[in-house]
């Protein structure tokens, strides 16, 4: 399950945010603190996650403390889906 979530989000980030569909992102690669995803794209990512997985992410959670890697984001999604 987690793997599906991760690969789904990974493809979104590669194609839509980084504009490099073939780019692979390691599940423990830092996304926000590394500057890979900026604040504008972060909002897009949150909306994508909300729409795709039917969970809510509040704006106060859009920072590296809440999630900074694909693994952390996927576990956030899983915990909200229960």
């Amino acid at each position: 399950m987690t793997d599906t979530i991760i690969s789904n989000i990974e493809s979104y980030i590669a194609a839509q945010i980084l504009k490099q569909p073939n780019r692979r992102i390691a599940s423990d690669e830092s996304l926000i603190s590394s500057g890979l995803i900026d604040s504008f794209s972060l909002m897009d990512l949150a909306l994508f996650v909300e729409d795709t997985f039917g969970v809510r992410i509040e704006d106060t959670e859009l920072n590296a403390n809440t999630f900074d890697t694909l693994t952390q984001l996927a576990s956030l999604v899983e915990s909200r889906r229960k």
């Binding site: 945010i17 980084l18 504009k19 490099q20 780019r23 590394s34 500057g35 890979l36 995803i37 900026d38 604040s39 504008f40 794209s41």
Partner: peptide
Amino acid sequence: QQKVADAIRLHVTKNSAIALRY
């Protein structure tokens, strides 16, 4: 080339006012 692209993205983002994607 991919590795250099990643390095450029990171370096420019960390050192300028923009977040470089392309």
